[in-house]
Amino acid sequence: MSSNNGLKIFTAPFNNSNPVTVLVLGICSALAVTVKLQPAFVMAISVTVVTGFSNLIISFLRNTIPNSIRIIVQLLVIATLVILVNEILKAYVYDVSKQLSVYVGLIITNCILMGRLEAFALGNKPIPSFIDGIANGMGYGIILIIVAFIRELFGSGTVFGITIIPESWYVANGGFYLNNGLIILPPMALIILGCIIWLHRSVNKDLQEK
């Protein structure tokens, strides 16, 4: 593996093959966990860990897995990792795990995981697979964080729970400002995501179909 190749594997998910904006995978959770930044951030880390290690494990096993139960084995590895992450969060960072509640479990259903295992880990060596997994997790996470930032700032007036919009601006305190209630709702996340895809495509000419 040349370092150049490794770098390419690492950077692709941030631009030309971003799992959310280009491959349009993992949209469901991008809508669900992006109301506030903190859960989005922990979700991004958890997904990165799970994609990285599931890619690594499947890549190690790739020559031994019988073709007929390939998908089930992948699912088993993903589910095991997700349960482990959930148990560890519960034992050591209880408050965070409570905030994420069901979403950690829902990592199992994230299409990016299975997508990367099928498309990359089954045909590549462990180290590039690991890099690919981590990079895809991060590519997903970065979109999550951008969406969550916009939604938390305009929906709740805070960033990471810290108040940004001054209290005195609010109508309730005699000001002129109101938080946008619509932005908290999932449909608005989809619209924000659409805008990000639009922006991404207009900047990156490679992505435009002729």
Binding site: V33, V35, K36, P39, Q99, S101, V102, R151, G155, S156, I184, L185
Partner: peptide, 8 residues
């Protein structure tokens, strides 16, 4: 709560 919508 167990699983109410975050932010709502």
């Amino acid at each position: 709560h167990e699983s109410e919508t975050p932010g709502l």
